[in-house]
Design a protein around this nucleic acid. Sequence first.
DNA 1: AGGTCGGCCTGGCAGC
DNA 2: TGCTGCCAGGCCGACC
Length: 284
Amino acid sequence: MPELPEVETIRRHLAPRVEGRVLERLEILDPRWCEPAPPNEVQDAVAGRRIERLARRGKYLVLELEDDVHLVMHLRMTGNLLLAPPDGSPPPYVRVRFELSDGERVLFTDPRRFGTGVVLLGSEARDEYFAARLGVEPLDPDFTPDALRLLARGRAAPVKAFLLTQERIAGVGNIYADEALFRARIHPLRPAGTLKRPQIEALRDAVVASLQAGIDARGATIDDFRNPDGARGAFQDRFLVHQREGEPCPRCGRAIVKLRAAGRGTYVCERCQPRPRSRRAIPA
DNA sequence: AGGTCGGCCTGGCAGC
DNA sequence: TGCTGCCAGGCCGACC
């Protein structure tokens, strides 16, 4: 599942290939992709415009076009953006086709069809769209321990659910939440508002380190994530706890346990990440 | 209003 | 072998 590091990997691969080219034609093969907008409307809004930038915000990719037209895309679970191989045979599950100047073609593939695309006219509309959905960008300098402390203050939700809430921190998904909590030695069921300052600082550093490690490995390939050139990521081989049930903890050797938190499969070392003892009052 | 849960969707796999 | 049914989960809307 593409999270911030996977989306950023795609962006870095694709940006030099698309920026400066003209998006000659957009072909939406699956109307669900842009629901409720009709495909014609979306296609007409972007066709013939120059691509100024491929940007990322949280797990969203934004194709910034001339005239302040923004195509905001989300890969959800199984979406992907691939450069079409020049030899012809297209990959399976193509939902949207981008035809660029100089014959370059980009394909949005998505077996489960959760991925979405929406056109926003004007950077103000784009900013409003993100402001309503996304919190702090965790790799930006303003993701400080103080910022995290304020976000967590008064939260009774388990810290894992807190990390997955995009309105608070943008871009952390199931993989990187598990990895960050392990690095910070915090149990995922610990209520977010009970974290003390040293743990807040450790968690901030761990979120940043986990995401950066994911980017350095060019993302994690679990099901079918691929870089736009078709290469697999390497981060799945570097998971510390995620999807390692029964394997020894890399720090202490105890078997890693799988549990459920925030409705998701969650992996922990219960020695390094001790369970919260009891419900404590959440400091307001 | 904070928090949780079901629906969306389909490939893959466990279990019969 | 072949079928059924369950699981995976990001996000959103419904509900408590």
